[in-house]
Amino acid sequence: MSPIIHTHSLRVRYGETDQMSVVYHTNYLNWFEVGRTELIRAAGLSYRQLEEKGVLLPLTDASISYKKPAKYDDVVEIRTHVELISPLRLTFAYEIVRLPDEELLVTGKTMHVFTTTDLRPIRLSKTEPEVYAWLEAQHKGEQL
């Protein structure tokens, strides 16, 4: 089965572009964060609530591949899914496409570990089994 893909659309703001009206490269990483925040929100849980439960998701690695530039006032869609999950780690994969033609602009991944608020690794499957089960179901393409 394929993972469930969560989507979030936004319009490129002027402040996200350079003098050529092209989105500045680091903004795509910010959009990745928007994608994973909205994916977690789809579980009925915000990042803030996860942190209040004592669980953090620090970033350990990021990769990004630029295909074509987004420009000022474009409408783009961030497509996010859980690519890999284990009790200790989580990898999200992303595609950013321009709408309405769905032209692929950027692909990327971010890797995270589950930790306590003092950055000690934890097994999410034991600490927050419901959250872990939901993320695992997303990866497997299952609805809970």
Rank of each mutant, 00 (worst) to 15 (best):
Q143P: 02
R89M: 11
L59D: 05
E130G: 09
P69N: 08
T60N: 03
K71T: 13
A62V: 13
F114S: 02
G54E: 11
E16L: 04
K140P: 03
M20F: 10
S46C: 02
K140A: 15
T80M: 04
T7I: 07
T117W: 08
D118S: 13
E103T: 14
D101R: 12
H81V: 00
V97F: 08
K71A: 13
Q19V: 12
E95Q: 15
V12I: 15
V106C: 03
P69Q: 03
S2Y: 11
I5R: 13
P121N: 10
E16M: 04
T116C: 07
L84I: 11
R89W: 09
L135Y: 02
P100N: 05
P3C: 09
L57E: 00
S63Q: 14
G54V: 10
W134N: 00
D73C: 07
V22S: 08
V76A: 03
E33L: 01
T117Y: 08
H112Q: 13
V131N: 01
N27G: 02
E77A: 06
T26L: 02
N27Q: 04
H8N: 11
V12E: 04
T17Q: 07
S125R: 13
Q143S: 12
F32C: 01
R79I: 05
E38A: 03
I64E: 00
P3M: 07
S63M: 11
S125Q: 14
H25A: 08
N27T: 04
H25C: 06
E52C: 07
R89V: 10
H112G: 03
Y94A: 01
H112I: 06
E128A: 15
T17V: 07
S9H: 09
L104T: 06
T91H: 08
L29Q: 02
M1V: 10
K53H: 15
L105A: 04
E128Y: 10
F114D: 01
R13F: 00
V12K: 01
S21R: 12
H139E: 13
R48P: 00
G44N: 05
K126I: 11
L50T: 06
K71D: 06
P100D: 08
A62Y: 03
D101I: 10
E136Y: 13
